[in-house]
Amino acid sequence: MATILVTGGTGTLGRLVTERLRADGHEMRVLSRSSRPYAVDLRTGGPGLDTALTGVETVVHCASNPRGGDERAADHLIAAARRADVGHLLYISIVGVDEVPYGYYRSKLAVERRIEESGLGWTVLRTTQFHDLVASALRALTRSPVVPLPAGVPDQPIEVAEVADRLAGLAAGPPAGRVPDMGGPQVRSFESLARAYLRATGRRRALVPVPLFGSTYRAFRAGAHLTPPEQAVGKGTFEDYLARRAGRRE
């Protein structure tokens, strides 16, 4: 079995990927800013990164920060992976990064291009947003009795565990380049997702669709972040996720 390193291996996705690959018999290394013995901040790099990659055959790059630094982190990771002769670099990205002019999406696209041009064997998987992210956004929005929602914006959330399964399968195989995108099972209005969240949490709020402006809003409203129907391969719905989360709290 291979020695595989997962960056961001303590995060929502990385933790599940690590668990699946370890269960399959792979030797796993988890790299994050606080996970010893491979505690490394990819944004600054350093000798600890070379140590973490020594003897590694595959890297699953899950580490990401919407506040910035992803491109610098990718530069450090790619350089160290070359030095370590890593055979396969697998990156998780987002559907629509090449069409939605949002800063974080542009950064993810820039990382994709760095990986493609790295000279390493590579795989890139793009997915739609995770249920967890949608729920976090709605939790913040519904603190107020009046909830503003972006008017006319659809979404297609996917279960993070399903993405972890796909990543683990790709990590165990050879480099595959850009693989088919992976989307959740339903394209939903953001308002319908908010209503599902309110029902699940027993809250009553006034939902107010708010028209926004700019190229990013137009791209989201046009569905540039959604997959075509044949790539809507996820099974778990947002309601399934909410019911499971409620069960964990009981």
Rank of each mutant, 00 (worst) to 15 (best):
F213G: 06
L125F: 11
G8T: 05
L193H: 04
A161C: 02
P150F: 05
E112M: 05
D50Y: 10
R248E: 14
D70S: 02
D132H: 12
P37K: 14
D24G: 14
V233G: 01
E250D: 12
L53T: 04
G177W: 07
P145Q: 00
T58L: 06
S215N: 14
R221C: 05
V111P: 03
S64Y: 07
L193S: 13
A135F: 05
A194I: 06
P148A: 08
A194G: 07
P154F: 06
V163S: 01
L226W: 05
V179Y: 07
R204H: 13
G14A: 09
Y91N: 08
F220V: 08
T12N: 14
F213L: 12
I78L: 15
S34F: 07
E162R: 02
Q129W: 00
H225T: 05
H131I: 05
V208W: 13
R72S: 07
G96H: 04
H61T: 11
R22A: 15
G45D: 10
R195S: 12
A200T: 07
V111S: 07
R29S: 12
A73C: 08
G55V: 13
A194N: 09
T237V: 00
N65D: 15
L242S: 03
A135K: 06
L242T: 04
G11M: 12
P229T: 03
M1P: 12
D240P: 01
P175G: 00
D24S: 15
P228R: 15
G214H: 09
D132R: 10
L133F: 11
G119S: 03
V111G: 05
A224R: 15
E27P: 03
L77K: 08
P185Y: 00
G46I: 15
L16H: 04
M1T: 14
